[in-house]
């Protein structure tokens, strides 16, 4: 499903301490594509991701996924919007500590009327052998795989990834990126990934660069490479 971002403004603070973090961001992400949001710290990329995710509100502008606009939605409707359209992957995994790998993924499945088959997901993520382990028995990469499984099992239209490899080593990061790519190919979700790792732009269909709350560049990546071939 297509993601449309129109004239998003966002400020924090008030009076003299007011800081405008997003200054009229507009862009479109095509259905089923991978979009990488790049930018230095404080550029506003995470804030934009949060606004797309409906967990932060924009002061101005609108976000649309297909025919659904989140502008003016109540908290209840926002929950349903997130439930229906979005999958979230965070840098810190945020798994439920008392649930096994399989159960953590079931948490995502619970949110959908038509979830994917959990065994297939476990196999896809390479977690079949670890399905009955608790999060504290897993490596960082395995935890992130689980969190991706939790996000994609409900067939979200858009998968939002906030620095998904930020806490991982090089090889594990590559494994996770391969997985995101595979999920995108297999499930057809639109992926929006926030990162400060410039190398990731090569695996994207679209690369949007932010600086000081504004879009510095918004390009289609004509020379897309597979995640496996990334290097940094």
């Amino acid at each position: 499903m297509q993601l449309k971002i129109e004239n998003i403004h966002k400020s924090f603070g008030s009076g003299d301490s007011r800081t405008e973090v997003l200054k009229g961001i507009s862009c479109t992400v095509d259905s089923g594509s991978i979009c990488v949001l790049l930018g230095p710290s404080g550029s506003g990329k995470s804030t934009l991701l949060n606004i797309i995710g409906g967990i932060e509100t924009a002061d101005e502008g609108s976000i649309s996924i297909g025919d659904d606009k989140i502008e003016g939605m109540s908290e209840k409707k926002l929950s349903l919007y997130r439930r229906k359209h979005l999958g979230y992957v965070f840098q810190a995994y945020n798994l439920v500590p008392d649930l096994t790998v399989k159960e953590n993924i079931e948490v995502g499945a619970y949110l959908s009327d038509n979830p994917m088959n959990i065994d297939e997901i476990l196999n896809l993520l390479g977690l079949w052998d670890h399905r009955n382990k608790m999060p504290n028995q897993l490596s960082g990469g395995q935890q992130q795989r689980t969190s991706i499984g939790r996000a994609v099992i409900k067939r979200p239209d858009i998968l939002l990834c906030d620095e998904p490899t930020g806490a991982l080593d090089y090889q594990t990061s590559k494994d996770i990126l391969k997985l995101i790519e595979e999920v995108n190919r297999t499930c057809g979700n639109t992926v929006v990934m926030v990162t400060h790792n410039d190398a990731l732009k090569h695996m994207a269909d679209r690369v949007i660069r932010l600086r000081d709350g504004a879009v510095r560049s918004n390009k289609i990546n004509e020379a897309k490479v597979a995640a496996a071939d990334l290097d940094w």
């Binding site: 997130r82 979005l86 995502g108 949110l111």
Partner: peptide, 10 residues
């Protein structure tokens, strides 16, 4: 926060 962001209701 993650569960809420994923669509869990309050």
């Amino acid at each position: 926060g993650t569960l809420r962001a994923s669509g869990f209701k309050r």
